[in-house]
Design a protein around this nucleic acid. Sequence first.
DNA 1: CGTAATTTTGATCTTCTTCAATCCTCGTGG
DNA 2: CCACGAGGATTGAAGAAGATCAAAATTACG
Lengths: 260, 260
Amino acid sequence: MLQYASFGRGDCDDPLFTGEIANPLVAKLQRFVSLGAEEIASITALSRSGQKFPANHVIIEEGSRPDHVCIILHGFAYRYKILTGGRRQILGYLVPGDLCDAHFAVFDQLDHSIATLGDAEVVRIPIQELLDLLARHPAIERGLSLAALVDRSILHEWLLNIGQRNAYQKLSHFLCELSVRLKAIGYVSADGTLELPLNQAALADTTGLTLVHINRTLQRMRAESLIALRGRRLTILDLERLAAVAGFEVGYLSPPVPAS
Amino acid sequence: MLQYASFGRGDCDDPLFTGEIANPLVAKLQRFVSLGAEEIASITALSRSGQKFPANHVIIEEGSRPDHVCIILHGFAYRYKILTGGRRQILGYLVPGDLCDAHFAVFDQLDHSIATLGDAEVVRIPIQELLDLLARHPAIERGLSLAALVDRSILHEWLLNIGQRNAYQKLSHFLCELSVRLKAIGYVSADGTLELPLNQAALADTTGLTLVHINRTLQRMRAESLIALRGRRLTILDLERLAAVAGFEVGYLSPPVPAS
DNA sequence: CGTAATTTTGATCTTCTTCAATCCTCGTGG
DNA sequence: CCACGAGGATTGAAGAAGATCAAAATTACG
């Protein structure tokens, strides 16, 4: 049984519910474009049941040229690069509904790896099937393009974050982003609690800081009553104030408004 | 008269030559896909003569929703974001042939600004015209998609660079990248000299370091005979060794090999 | 209940920042 | 042809943010 189900749109492990729950990819696309019943059915058909992976399982290895695309159904994953010497930079997080490299994978070998954060459920779709789907349904293609746009915005924001802010702000900013993204897919409870398998080492490699320094920064944030943290359960006590110290602006995470 | 012409494919300011020189966008696309004569003609027609801007002129402002796309014909530009407080992060550089936001601009308002680095010549193409062009010539669209892929790789590499390497490596890595990119468009002379209007403040905001620290790092690199630097003229004396200290691997800059 | 992973703490060190001058360089106008 | 001014480069000194190393404490988990 996967964790976090209680915050999600329902427990996909329960076969009784399978037909009823919004497919996470459908849900994601619907934040960008409106989909017809047939489009929803097509996506659902492709991504009904996935493969389950344990924590820290490498889904796609840097340098490979995958012949399929992965969609996260449950749980989380992250993109990363490793430096000779062992240092790791996390390049981004994938949440349910996100896919590992839409049409990108068609051409190229990956420049980074992707691994599961905690236990996760992932569907693999042969590239050709995805291409067919996109060809048949321009709305889906458009939705994915817009999603890619948001991804790029996030990348830009991360660059700004890592390059220009101090440790306290870096961490705050990342937590704000996380909170907003997870809220959008229903993974944050009313009191601001999010539960995810993110350890301090991952936070360090996300922000370009040291594990030790992350630890101390977290403590400071707790002391200031910005967050509460126990085990995997992180509660953002004061998102307003957290956003203020981070200089966080939601804009870049919102689906772009289509030109009229 | 624009600088750097001597390193480029010819002097585009000379009207006698205009018809003969490869259009920089054509040249760029040809590194990814093969173009027919008609495609080349179409592109050339769209981007024959541009508008000239002085140094540090903002071409596209963050938050605007441009109805056109810009192509750099001559000179350089950079993407950047500014933080309240004045800190600036440079997100990437545009060289001749690059465009400010291909099909991206269709949907969204920009999340960052773009400005010229030195004097530059830029064409503005109405989005609709570009869309028509892409619709008529799938090869061009494909070329731009591949170019976007490389852009993303670069962004990933920058994140790794800023997040995980030390000052010496950061700067070395950036210089390696610059050298390779400029060499690809013929802007590096045989002895490794590149001439571009990049001051130490820009290097600082590119790497997330301080101007003062950049200065001292450059001095160290000179002392180690890795580079020579006089005014705008940077010579990479030993690219091998520079790449070694930076942990630089060219791969991510190469056009992806199309799947067979 | 024991082992491994993760978090926490302490002490020390150094890389990089900050602040504040000074010094070039180069284009401009007198 | 030279003085002037501005942007850019360089230097120095001092401080701080964050890194590193090593160990202990906690927590998770089979």
